[in-house]
Design a protein around this nucleic acid. Structure first.
Length: 280
DNA sequence: CACCAGGTATACG
DNA sequence: CGTATACATGGT
């Protein structure tokens, strides 16, 4: 199946954007995405002017129901760049560098666990950790002759019933009890990630913060990358550095209202990849 | 081999 | 409120 997209869309930048740790680059034009038990192989097969043609492994139904929301395709990132880039030269440059980024709408459980694990870890270390969890405790969804088959992200129940030794072997470090607390709350029903979707930002952050190991930054990442709360801008070391170096220590995000989280993503990408010496 | 990584909990003033 | 420190492990 093929679909044309007439907006910013760069799977390589999305892969490197630090919001999802399971995107695979298969070759120059083909990427593999996984969410829940769904899997998508995306191939950039044509390009005219500013529009891209994507060849997709899914059918029309799951494209509309799953992947269109996943890629936030009903929002114009091109329009957003035009609208917001004049507010600051640094943001304008960040948006130029990050053109093609999108905020993904990911599965809340996978996002919560991934960002619990993310604290004081590099992007490759997080990806490794997540991949080990999937391989050990997830279900296989696709065979790949090369060796690295694709697995689902394990459910709360699947992680709860795993032994401590096997979990520890995934490189969780001191985050192991944090993951166990999250799994216990979600598996027992004490915390229903699905029902949090109806809460306002403030209550959503508070509910997520009940989980041990979840502070404001991790809660904000889950709110932004799983619940689409684009008004929230997570502040990590890179964003903190940007605020200090480019905004005289004062957060620029209040000026961007409901776009703050998206602006934050462009800045994160620019800080991490925008200058030489940051290859990974 | 130092140093850092998409931070948080805890213990202090 | 604010600041200081420990925390496990992997990548560079």
């Amino acid at each position: 199946m093929k679909r044309w997209i007439d907006d910013d869309f760069d799977p390589e930048k999305i892969r490197l954007s630090g919001q999802c740790f399971r995107i695979q680059r298969l070759d120059e034009r083909r990427y593999l995405f996984v969410t829940g038990s769904q899997l998508l192989i995306l191939n950039i097969c044509d390009q005219k002017n500013e529009a891209l043609c994507l060849e997709l492994s899914c059918d029309a139904g799951s494209w509309e129901k799953i992947w269109r929301p996943y890629f936030d395709l009903d929002r114009s990132y091109r329009g957003l760049r035009a609208e917001e880039s004049e507010k600051s030269p640094f943001i304008k440059e960040s948006m130029r560098l990050g053109k093609g980024l999108r905020i993904l709408r990911q599965d809340p459980w996978e996002t919560l666990v991934s960002f619990i694990l993310s604290q004081r870890k590099s992007l490759p270390a997080i990806a490794r950790c997540v991949e080990l969890l999937c391989r050990k405790f997830g279900r296989k969804v696709m065979e790949i002759p090369g060796g690295n088959d694709v697995y689902t992200f394990p459910s709360a129940m699947e992680l709860l019933s795993a032994s401590e030794g096997e979990l520890a072997a995934c490189g969780l470090g001191y985050r192991l009890p944090y993951l166990q607390d999250a799994a216990r709350r979600c598996a027992s029903g004490e915390l229903s990630l699905e029902s949090l979707a109806s809460l306002p930002d403030r209550d959503l952050l508070e509910a997520l913060s009940q989980v041990k190991g979840v502070g404001l930054k991790v809660a904000s990442c889950v709110a932004l990358f799983a619940y689409g709360r684009t008004g929230l801008a997570p502040v990590d070391v890179w964003i903190g550095r940007a605020i200090k170096e480019h905004f005289a220590g004062q957060s620029p995000f209040p000026a961007f209202g409901d776009h703050a989280g998206i602006i934050q993503q462009y800045i994160f990408y620019a800080m991490k990849w925008g200058r030489p010496g940051q290859e990974e």
